[in-house]
Every structure is written in structure tokens, then in C-alpha cells.
Design a protein around this nucleic acid. Structure first.
Lengths: 108, 108
DNA sequence: AATATTGTTCGTATATTTGCAAACAACATT
DNA sequence: AATGTTGTTTGCAAATATACGAACAATATT
């Protein structure tokens, strides 16, 4: 009977970030947010070819993954990147891609 | 009536890669493959806490996304990273994370 | 020709994702 | 108190994703 390793916390975290980024609308949102300090829901909605309910849903997923944060400024809602986790994601992906022996030309 | 932009090809490609990486098993597979030139299905299966049918399925998704490639060496199957697309993914993610004004400390 | 080895594919079950319209919530304005 | 503005939440439908065992395919060995 083999020993079946579980996934590491880092693998789980990386997968979580990747999953959150696994939709063009969410990539577009992050892309848009990355370019500015903050912006409102309406601005984001205008950028996307989908209904506001769907935009709200995608924002919720990004928020749940920790990549963005929202703040109510009645009657609007202001969104921005969660800097700390963005940094973390950046580092995790960098490390992930950096580990390949491709770097030394030995890959495949 | 607002103009609803479609997603760019880069956003679609990035989302596709991210989606493929959006599961801990697939992160683990890439992690494992990145450490060696090549390896067989059985080696990958041993590393994971899931049934072989499921491993095969995850490998297919990574292959469809272009991140890995497989080659039959009867009776085994040899997998390795698709170097060209790995490079592409690496660059796209690097650019994606590099664009944030976080860099200049203005974020949020 | 029966058996063993290595993976893939099929069939199935369950859960999650995606998308929208309609209803709702909170507040400001009329 | 009715209306308008800005987003969220709900309810629903369709499509995907995840996981497994069983059946299968291809070849090698007995």
C-alpha cells in the first residue's frame, strides 16, 4: 500500500489563486483594478460584456479568494486590489514558474 | 448604450492557463514535473491521493491547456512539461502581476 | 491463448460554475 | 411618501468539473 501524500498548504493556496483567476472576466477585472488605485462597481461593470449580477458574482469570488477588497461608499461600492495577497500570489507564482529545470535548458 | 468590450486574446489565454492550474492536484502534477526531465504516469499517480482515472483526467486537462505533453512508450506513458507554453505562461503571469501600481506603493 | 502490466475511456453521480432577470436593500432626492 | 441610484441577493437553468469503479486497449510474458 502506497503512501498517498496530501497537497501542501502552498499548493492549495496557489490553486485557489489560480482558480480565482481562471475566468477571462476575472482576469479583466484584476487587469482593470491593477491600473488604478481604486474604482467603483459601475466602472468595472462598464468594462465587461456581462450583466451586473454576474459582475457582482465574479467580484465576490475574487474577494473570497482574497485578491480584492470592497468598501461601501453609499450609494456606491469601491473596489481595490488586496495588496498583501496580491503580493503573496505574485511570489507564489514566481516561485512556481521559477522552479522548472527548463531554466537550465534540460527540460523535455 | 455602453460599448461592451470583449476580452482580449491575452486575457483569454491567461485565464485558460490559470484555470488549468486551478486545482491542487494539477498544481502538484506541474510541481512534480517541473523538478525532472520526464516521468511516467505511474510516478505521478503515486504522488497523488486520487484514483488513476482521476489522475488521467487531470493530465488530459493540463495537456489540453498546453502545459504538458505526453508520449507513449509502451506499455508506459511519459509526460513532461510543454516547454514553449510553460515559457509563455510564465511571461504572461509575470506581466500580469508586474503591471500593478502596487509596485510604486500607490495601491489601495 | 491465457495472464499481467500500464493507462485511457466510459458510465455515472454529485457538486460547482456561469449567467441572467427579477426582487430587494440602502440611501438620496423629489 | 413616491422615485431614482447603485449594487447585492435570490431563484433558476444550463453547462462544467470532480471523482470513482469497471471495462477496455495495447503490448509483453507465460
Amino acid at each position: 500500500m502506497e503512501e498517498k501524500k496530501d497537497y501542501t498548504a502552498t499548493q492549495e493556496q496557489l490553486a485557489r489563486f489560480a482558480k480565482a483567476l481562471g475566468h477571462p472576466a476575472r482576469i479583466a477585472i484584476m487587469h482593470f483594478l491593477a491600473k488604478q488605485k481604486t474604482c467603483y462597481f459601475g466602472d468595472i461593470h462598464e468594462e465587461l460584456p456581462i450583466a451586473k449580477a454576474t459582475v457582482s458574482q465574479h467580484l465576490k469570488e475574487l474577494k473570497d479568494a482574497g485578491l480584492i477588497q470592497g468598501e461601501v461608499e453609499t450609494p456606491k461600492v469601491k473596489y481595490c486590489i488586496n495588496r498583501k495577497n496580491w503580493q503573496l500570489a505574485c511570489e507564489l507564482f514566481k516561485e512556481f514558474f521559477g522552479q522548472c529545470i527548463c531554466k537550465s535548458g534540460e527540460c523535455c
